[in-house]
Amino acid sequence: METILDYIEYLQERYVSILEYSYEHLLISFLAIMFGILLTVPAAILLTRVKNDLFNSTVFNIVNVFQTIPTIALLAIMIPFFGIGLQPAVIALFLYSLLPLLRNTYAGIKSVDPGIIESAKGMGFGQAKQLFTIEIPLALPYIMSGIKTTTVYIISWTTLAAVIGAGGLGDLILGGIGLNDKFMIFTGTFIAIILALSMDLIFGKVEKKLTR
């Protein structure tokens, strides 16, 4: 009982800065994912047009490499190139987002029934018309599900970005560890979980709407 009252008091005192941390956290995640989408969606579409399998698997292998570097190490590697702060964190998380986004978009476009593509071609659809009115809409559920999964775990990894001074909820947790403050650690963790879960929920809803 005592602890709960203390915690409420803590929240009342610190809610402005908690909101700020949350905002930073969302901003980093959002930027990383947005850049990820901007690069991967067109890239994946181009890859589906490439007939050369070797080229495609090379691209996927390169992108896969980023995935295998431990998060903390990738963040550290950023420092010599981009220093510390928000920018290197966004870049590192962006690199992480590439594989799942690329893979899902590619698979989505590839999954469109060849019979549908053939009848579109046969009826006289041009390349662009076919892409925007047939292929992308039909691949959208796949693309959205890629965005959903990626968003959820980028939000969770953004917590680590605090180690290179990017801010976000990680700051709250690291601070809590330094000051041995249970409330700070708990709040940081809890909000990160809530953010991830609500993104999962929202994107899940959107995804469902798109899959009819």
């Binding site: 029934d113 019979g115 549908i116 053939e118 009848s119 579109a120 046969g122 047939i134 039909l138």
Partner: peptide, 8 residues
């Protein structure tokens, strides 16, 4: 075509 290819 055989698979009809209607746009779902």
């Amino acid at each position: 075509i055989q698979s009809i290819g209607l746009f779902p």
